[in-house]
Simulated scan of single mutants.
Amino acid sequence: MNFEDLEKIQRDVNWDITYQSDLEHYKKSDHWAIPADGLGDCEDYALLKRHLLLEAGWPKEKLRLATCYTETGGYHAVLIAILGATWTDETWWVLDNREKLPKSWRMMDHYKWDRMQDEKGVWRAVVS
């Protein structure tokens, strides 16, 4: 588990997947799936990044899906990867298809966080 894993997965997935909304792709408003055909929207990018990091040996409790509202009010999903044993801004990294590189949690203050998985995968409200 290291930051280089995050950089590689972020770069590779963002490069390999072409953004397409669920409505265009699946003919429904919301569908979460690991992209198998090179097309996907934000949660599909996040799911693929999570899948690849798990394959690389990352423990699942260190990978958390999260949802937020963007600066334009759109609803968005990302992957949070945790490096280290304790919570600090320096150990929580956001893998976002809208960003070139993983970004520290503290650098993402343009998002209004809504929900995030806990260490057991249960979705919880984010209290800010």
Rank of each mutant, 00 (worst) to 15 (best):
residue 127 V to Y: 15
residue 2 N to E: 12
residue 119 E to G: 03
residue 43 E to M: 12
residue 17 I to F: 00
residue 100 K to M: 14
residue 63 L to H: 04
residue 65 L to C: 06
residue 94 V to W: 00
residue 82 I to R: 14
residue 43 E to I: 05
residue 63 L to Q: 07
residue 57 G to H: 08
residue 74 G to C: 11
residue 16 D to N: 14
residue 97 N to W: 04
residue 14 N to Q: 04
residue 42 C to D: 03
residue 20 Q to M: 02
residue 2 N to K: 10
residue 95 L to E: 10
residue 8 K to M: 13
residue 67 T to G: 09
residue 15 W to H: 14
residue 34 I to Y: 11
residue 54 L to F: 00
residue 103 K to E: 09
residue 25 H to T: 10
residue 67 T to M: 03
residue 99 E to R: 15
residue 30 D to H: 14
residue 76 H to E: 10
residue 93 W to T: 03
residue 15 W to F: 13
residue 14 N to A: 10
residue 99 E to S: 05
residue 79 L to D: 02
residue 84 G to K: 01
residue 117 Q to E: 11
residue 75 Y to C: 04
residue 5 D to F: 01
residue 13 V to S: 00
residue 11 R to K: 12
residue 12 D to I: 02
residue 55 E to V: 00
residue 122 V to W: 07
residue 55 E to Q: 08
residue 110 H to F: 08
residue 1 M to G: 14
residue 55 E to L: 02
residue 125 A to F: 12
residue 83 L to P: 07
residue 68 C to F: 08
residue 8 K to P: 05
residue 102 P to I: 02
residue 92 W to H: 14
residue 62 K to L: 07
residue 87 W to R: 09
residue 60 K to E: 06
residue 33 A to V: 04
residue 112 K to R: 15
residue 28 K to L: 12
residue 32 W to A: 04
residue 4 E to Q: 12
residue 125 A to W: 13
residue 102 P to V: 02
residue 72 T to S: 10
residue 7 E to V: 15
residue 78 V to P: 06
residue 109 D to P: 04
residue 60 K to M: 08
residue 17 I to S: 00
residue 76 H to V: 03
residue 17 I to N: 01
residue 11 R to M: 11
residue 87 W to V: 07
residue 60 K to F: 02
residue 128 S to V: 10
residue 19 Y to K: 11
residue 48 L to R: 06
residue 122 V to C: 07
residue 35 P to V: 09
residue 101 L to I: 10
residue 27 K to N: 13
residue 29 S to W: 08
residue 48 L to A: 07
residue 4 E to P: 06
residue 30 D to V: 11
residue 109 D to N: 14
residue 69 Y to P: 06
residue 2 N to P: 14
residue 59 P to W: 00
residue 58 W to G: 02
residue 8 K to A: 15
residue 23 L to T: 11
residue 66 A to L: 03
residue 27 K to E: 07
residue 42 C to G: 01
residue 8 K to H: 15
residue 87 W to D: 11
residue 107 M to C: 11
residue 58 W to Y: 10
residue 1 M to C: 13
residue 110 H to S: 14
residue 68 C to E: 07
residue 23 L to W: 09
residue 7 E to W: 12
residue 55 E to D: 10
residue 93 W to P: 12
residue 118 D to E: 05
residue 17 I to D: 07
residue 35 P to H: 00
residue 69 Y to C: 13
residue 41 D to S: 09
residue 57 G to I: 00
